[in-house]
């Protein structure tokens, strides 16, 4: 194709000229938009919005300004959960594990969850963070959703056992926080987990 066009090349200047005459939209031949090096990391999240408040997205063109009365603000959850780093793991609460690409609770893991639920009900002034994790197979974005489903399935089971839903926060790490780095089934099985952390209210 290309070669045939080339043989007709003498016509190209005519066409180019025609384009000029027609005043067609042309790409600028020059630009002064030298890309500044964002050398320093862009200002971090703190400062992009009032601390502790999840503002709606900034108004367009006005960096960092919360959109006034934007519907985004309505999306703000009334009670923000504490940051994940405020929670700590305790030995009593055991991880549960999942089959590959699955998020249903296996019978053996249900027993572990029953024990965990007992502790949670006996310690009502502790908030609970459930982390959902995946193994490295699968792709990042899908695994974020899969980890979320695992955390959610775990929460649903605990709530059915009488744990107050309002005490529970979920976080999916997808495949980003593996416990075990080897590439074999034993290791992958350890990574497909729901992990529990607590924080006194």
């Amino acid at each position: 194709m290309l070669y045939r066009r080339w043989q007709l090349l003498p016509i190209v200047p005519v066409l180019v000229l025609a384009l000029f005459l027609m005043g067609c939209p042309k790409r600028p031949a020059t630009t002064s938009a030298a890309a500044p090096a964002p050398g320093a990391p862009a200002p971090g999240a703190p400062g992009a919005g009032p601390a502790g408040v999840m503002a709606g997205p900034g108004a367009p063109g006005v960096p960092g300004t919360p959109a006034p009365g934007a519907p985004g603000a309505a999306a703000v959850t009334p009670a923000r959960p504490p940051a994940p780093r405020e929670f700590t793991a305790i030995a009593t609460l055991q991880d549960i594990h999942f089959d590959f690409d699955k998020y249903d609770i296996r019978p053996g893991d249900a027993k572990t969850l029953d024990e965990n639920a007992k502790w949670m009900k006996a310690n009502p002034n502790h908030l609970i963070l459930i982390e959902g994790h995946c193994d490295e197979r699968g792709t990042n974005e899908y695994n974020l959703a899969l980890g979320e489903r695992r955390a959610k399935a775990t929460m649903n089971y605990l709530v059915a056992q009488g744990v107050q839903a309002t005490r529970v926060t979920l976080i999916s790490y997808g495949e980003e926080r593996p416990l075990c780095a080897e590439k074999n089934e034993a290791c992958w099985a350890k990574n497909r987990r729901a992990h529990f952390l607590v924080k006194a209210r």
Partner: peptide
């Protein structure tokens, strides 16, 4: 903004995942 000195904007900060 990859080529401008502008603060990072929050687009979505809902409970749960905000991804993809």
């Amino acid at each position: 903004f990859a080529f401008e000195r502008r603060p990072i904007q929050l687009l979505a900060g809902f409970l749960g995942i905000n991804t993809s």
